[in-house]
């Protein structure tokens, strides 16, 4: 546990040394806090004042109001809650199913690998958005359905990344070594390979968060995501699109926040990849020049 916290701290420190990544962390922190403590803010995303519909930005409604007179800022803040809950749930489902699949497929190979990876291929045989839409068509439209649909489309990426990592580690002598002094397959999988696989899985969690947020918003934009009146960024953009001529500002704030959230996850994901790769490189760089591989 202590080792874990150390590693976490080391990665955070390395992240905060990069200006882009640091800004991203701060932005995401702000969004998350706003989503968690939205109830304590003087914001009401549902209060309608039809008389105030489609107001341009003003003193009370800094980013204007929507077609029902609801405050756009309030809806964006509560939309963050929808977005982050869906993304977190979806990533959790994807990792919880994908990582074990990749682990078993990569470790045992053979028929287990063939069966599991065919299953993954089926998930990949359709573009993610279509797959999610088809699932929602079956499950019916709800927040849970959106969460599950987005989560299932994320399973292949975890399965493949984990499998690739396991296959690479399987060739390493320290895994063979455990076998050579009599460690069981379970011991090797969970005590040797998994602890050495956290880095790529962690990066994938971050990357998939951005994909999940995008996908949730896209589903809402298409009118099959989280159902109204729950505020959602995608749903706001969908409605805003109908008032482009009357209220061109409508779609601006939700669009900016959505984009910044996606960009932040993406920036952190890339920074983490580089940090972890650098660390890996220093190990390999110590190899003597004349070593026979």
């Amino acid at each position: 546990m202590k080792k874990w916290l150390q590693a976490l701290r080391r990665n955070l420190v390395a992240l905060m040394r990069r200006p882009g990544a640091a800004l991203s962390v701060i932005f995401l922190l702000a969004i998350t806090l706003a989503a968690i403590f939205a109830d304590f803010l003087p914001l009401d995303p549902l209060r309608q004042r039809v008389a105030n519909a489609l107001m341009p930005p003003n003193g009370t409604n800094w980013f204007g109001t929507d077609e029902l007179g609801r405050d756009i800022i309030a809806r964006v803040v509560y939309g963050a809650r929808t977005s982050l809950i869906t993304a977190a749930g979806a990533v959790a489902i994807a990792a919880a199913v994908g990582v074990p699949i990749g682990l078993v497929a990569g470790f045992f190979g053979g028929w287990r690998d063939a069966v599991l990876m065919r299953f993954i291929d089926v998930l990949l045989a359709l573009p993610g958005i279509l797959f999610a839409m088809a699932m929602i068509a079956v499950l019916g439209r709800s927040q849970l359905a959106a969460l599950i649909a987005v989560g299932v489309t994320g399973i292949p990426s975890f399965a493949r990344i984990t499998r690739a990592q396991v296959l690479a580690l399987r060739k390493r002598d320290f895994v063979t070594a455990v076998e050579s002094f009599g460690g069981s397959s379970g011991y090797n999988m969970f005590r040797t390979i998994l602890p050495n696989s956290w880095s790529p899985i962690l990066v994938q969690v971050v990357v998939l968060s951005s994909v999940a947020i995008l996908l949730e918003a896209a589903l809402a934009f298409l009118g099959v995501g989280v159902p109204p009146p729950t505020p959602s960024w995608g749903e706001m953009l969908r409605t805003g699109k109908n008032y482009l001529y009357e209220a061109p500002y409508y779609a601006i704030l939700p669009g900016i926040v959505l984009t910044l959230t996606i960009l932040s996850f993406d920036t952190i994901g890339r920074a983490l990849t580089e940090i972890l790769e650098d660390r890996h490189d220093t190990g390999a760089g110590l190899k003597p020049e004349g070593s026979k591989a």
Partner: peptide, 22 residues
């Protein structure tokens, strides 16, 4: 490239409509 990837197509589409059509 990061921006091109990060801006959701549906928002980018709206922005392009606002600019080129509206």
């Amino acid at each position: 490239s990061a921006l091109a990837l990060g801006v959701p197509t549906f928002w980018l589409g709206i922005l392009l409509i606002l600019l080129f059509a509206v």
